[in-house]
């Protein structure tokens, strides 16, 4: 006995395009007959579902909420553009501010350096000479008088 028909063979039979041997087999095979009846039944249901369409626009369209998927999609795209633009503006501003802050930090560092140097340079403001000791310093330490302190020329020469 010939093996059962495949689905596309049954479909060909349905559309009057089946081979003669397929028709003969269908008459003798209960399994294929049952499958063919199921195919006919399914195609009838499908045809009913698709053939009966309303004459005008569907009634539900009038009741449909105005926020259709297209409107939501358009609004989402617009919001995305605004967000991207805002992020770009924010990043630009942030980069601009960072540049200025960096300059301030540099300037502060320079200012600190100058202050330290100034402090070092101005450390003798109270009469003390930080680096090389002078004769007067030695005289003070020894408790003696400087030569020529009485105003003699020799004093002058001693200087």
């Amino acid at each position: 006995m010939r093996e059962c028909l495949r689905d596309h063979n049954l479909l060909s039979v349905y559309y009057d395009e089946g081979a003669v041997e397929d028709l003969t087999h269908l008459e003798t095979c209960s399994n294929c007959t049952a499958r063919y009846r199921r195919l006919v039944h399914d195609l009838e249901l499908i045809g009913q579902a698709l053939e009966r369409l309303p004459a005008a626009l569907p009634a539900r369209r009038q009741d449909r909420e105005p926020w259709s998927r297209r409107v939501v999609l358009a609004a989402t795209l617009a919001a995305g553009v605004v967000m991207v633009t805002s992020i770009g503006v924010w990043q630009w501003r942030d980069a601009h501010v960072n540049v200025q802050r960096q300059r301030t930090d540099d300037e502060n560092e320079i200012l600190r350096f100058l202050a330290d140097a100034s402090t070092g340079l101005s450390a003798g403001g109270d009469g003390e000479m930080p680096m090389l000791p002078l004769a007067s310093d030695r005289a003070d330490r020894d408790g003696g008088e400087l030569e020529g302190q009485d105003g003699s020329v020799d004093d002058m020469e001693g200087i």
């Binding site: 249901l45 009913q48 579902a49 009966r52 309303p54 569907p58 539900r60 369209r61 259709s68 998927r69």
Partner: peptide, 26 residues
């Protein structure tokens, strides 16, 4: 495009035999 629900205004007896959910699914 949003899916448009196809509504049958004047269902025939054959159409009513086909359940609404099945028709929508098809």
């Amino acid at each position: 495009a949003e899916e448009v629900e196809l509504v049958d205004h004047d269902p025939t007896p054959d159409a009513t035999a086909l359940a609404g959910e099945t028709r929508h699914r098809i």
